[in-house]
């Protein structure tokens, strides 16, 4: 994968997404153009219904545009079939969800090994990589705990370890601190920031918490399926003060 700082890894060209038909037609995305370069930490913000989750799914190659183009590393995702998209997610993307989405009754280690199974890694090598990822998020010694035995913050760390274990180019985080208290949220954001700064992983995060968005390099503010404005946290949040 090109690691050129100026290459857009994610590019939306006039993307629309329409759900439903006729009277019930909803324009979740209404002509969105944006680009995110390698190594950026971007927060997508906006009121609910602004289309940020749809944009998120699009970035994660889980959804495809109704019209317009979405390019991932210059590749038209719409032209890929289901399996090719699965391969793309497997090799270049990691996901972190609001609800953690760990497999229940499955140890932290087994959860983190999951993406590697689909990559075809086996035995000791797979284990080593998973342990390494758990170490990175500060969960050494908790490898064999079930999700139910871990705090929310720890569960989200497991989820981050699962996202980063495949050495992805981009981590897509959907409200990663939505279920956590302030202290845990800060810790999780620090983990994500370190991954961004130290490992150069591009991070695209949806959040509605301004404190968390403050960790990003850039904020994309969406309203009604359009990008209203983009800028640094200071530019966006400074002008809006502490509304919410």
């Amino acid at each position: 994968m090109p690691a050129d700082k100026n290459t857009p890894v994610i590019e939306f060209r006039d993307v629309t997404k329409v759900y439903g038909q006729g009277e019930a037609e909803v324009h979740a995305l209404d002509g969105v153009s944006l680009s995110i370069t390698t190594g950026e930490f971007v927060a997508i913000m906006g009121p609910s219904g602004s289309g940020k989750s749809t944009a998120m799914n699009m970035v994660g190659c889980l959804d495809s545009p109704t019209s317009g183009d979405y390019l991932f590393n210059g590749v038209h995702v719409a032209a890929l079939d289901q399996d090719q998209r699965a391969l793309l997610r497997r090799n270049y993307l990691g996901f972190v969800f609001q609800g953690f989405n760990l497999l229940p009754r499955t140890s932290a280690l087994d959860n983190v090994e999951l993406p590697l199974i689909y990559k075809g890694l086996v035995g000791a090598e797979r284990r080593a990589q998973a342990l390494d990822a758990l170490g990175k998020v500060g969960l050494k010694g908790r490898e064999h705990h079930d999700p139910s035995e871990l705090s929310g913050g720890q569960q989200q760390r497991v989820a981050i370890a699962r996202a980063l274990v495949g050495t992805p180019q981009v981590i897509v985080a959907d409200e990663p601190t939505g279920n956590l208290d302030t202290k845990m949220s800060k810790e999780i954001m620090e983990v994500l920031r370190d991954l961004n700064k130290d490992d150069g992983i591009t991070i695209v995060m949806v959040t509605h918490e301004e404190d968390m968005a403050g960790f990003a390099d850039r904020i994309i503010w969406m309203v009604d399926g359009r990008v209203e404005r983009t800028g640094t946290p200071a530019e966006i949040l400074g002008t809006r003060g502490h509304r919410q």
Partner: peptide, 16 residues
Amino acid sequence: TREIGIRLAIGATANQ
């Protein structure tokens, strides 16, 4: 269903 969603998101193909 949710587990299947997770698996698909992290890169499992439909066949897998």
